[in-house]
Design a binder for these strands. Structure first.
Lengths: 227, 227
DNA sequence: ACCTGAACACCGTTCAAGT
DNA sequence: ACCTGAACACCGTTCAAGT
């Protein structure tokens, strides 16, 4: 009878996709620092060296994880509505992938992805901005500003967190003693606000800031941003 | 004759500061991936285990590197001028530290720093925004948007580069074959622009966007950002 | 075609011990 | 007070070899 080829061990032979999906599961569960060739191989019931048959090295494996996660982004949310609504839709779609993969998402943010899966959201964003009436160059600059803002925001929220921000409650409110505080009156004044970070609200605040700025840009039509 | 105490090896005993400075030099020269306890010890002419007398573990060492680099930021550039000029001054001061330490700066961007050295630029930024007339909450939100944008921008420029952007010349212009391109007409149209990224200009473009948005916010005085 | 064993050159960290 | 040797439990990767 016709049957899928099996290995001596009695399981279907591995594919690149199966390897990468196992890696996504591993990182989603235990974080990026837990991803090692040896641990991943153990999860798959093979030896570490066998992975090199399916993947050239660890870097390529990580790129595969990042691409698999990013591929889940729901681009369709940028399809309808005013250009402002479409921009918000894209921004939220990006953050929702992050929420679905909080442990893996830092890999999306720190890898330079060149494949089609990375081009898809770029295509969507450029469509929105061009439809809004921005010229090619402005659309690209605006896109890069959005990407930078989103990258920084989601890094703060999900991973390798950026400096100068998201000071945890223990960070400012509790940990600093009074003497040190007196050196930073503004920080002391804002301490209760700095101590908590409502990530979704901060994200949406920033997105609205950028949208307001683009509305201004559009108003001034041909005139460039003042230096 | 009075003399500084020396070790059997004939050098002055190490301090935490000397260890961290050596680490900064190491990372500035060979990048963060080259920083290992064993390599750093070798640079210092001691054994790896001796480092643990001065520093509790590698994470603390890296935090020390990040803080040392960030401490170089020239806050004084936010002291004079209109609030817009002061915001630009701070943004440039931050990027200039990055330019001075291109290999080390990703560590500043990916570590959560809680010490006074991290509070100094926050204090400066809050001063500018409060002087500009923003209330406490708005100042904190605006600061977080700026930090997110700067983090993402400088990650793209100097390190672990974010997805969806900075597609290198080889990334879009050259590497994609024609067939794949036709799936992404906007990307094809903008390919020459996507292929190059003038980091300083992109950074300043984004800073101006955020400033324009804040000017709008100030104009609408008491009215909140529309959702 | 797919997988493995042995080996190489690394890691961070602990701990008891040296001076 | 400051440093070390030996050891433990890991890494990624190569390469010749197995089925």
């Amino acid at each position: 009878m016709a049957q899928i080829a099996t290995t001596k061990a009695g399981r279907a032979p591995l594919t690149r996709e199966a390897v990468i999906h196992a890696a996504v599961r591993l990182v989603d569960q235990d974080g990026p620092e837990a991803l090692s060739m040896r641990r991943l191989a153990a999860d798959l019931g093979i030896e570490a060296m066998s992975l090199y048959y399916h993947v050239p090295n660890k870097a390529a494996l990580i790129d595969g994880v990042a691409e698999t996660v990013l591929a889940e982004m729901d681009i369709s949310r940028a399809a309808r509505g005013t250009w402002e609504e479409r921009v918000r839709g894209l921004a939220r779609a990006f953050r929702e992938v992050a929420l679905a993969h909080p442990r893996s998402f830092p890999l999306v943010l720190t890898r330079q992805l060149g494949s089609a899966v990375a081009l898809r959201p770029i295509e969507a964003a450029l469509s929105v901005l061009r439809d809004a009436g921005f010229d090619r160059a402005t659309a690209v600059h605006a896109l890069r500003s959005f990407v930078a803002f989103q990258t920084g925001s989601l890094m703060r929220e999900f991973g390798a967190s950026p400096a100068l921000s998201g000071l945890s409650p223990s960070g400012v409110a509790a940990r600093k003693d009074e003497l040190e505080r007196s050196q930073f009156p503004m920080v002391v004044e804002a301490a209760p606000l700095l101590a908590v970070c409502h990530h979704e609200r901060e994200y949406e605040f920033g997105v609205e800031l950028l949208i307001v700025a683009l509305q201004q840009l559009r108003g001034r039509k041909k005139r460039p941003l003042k230096r």
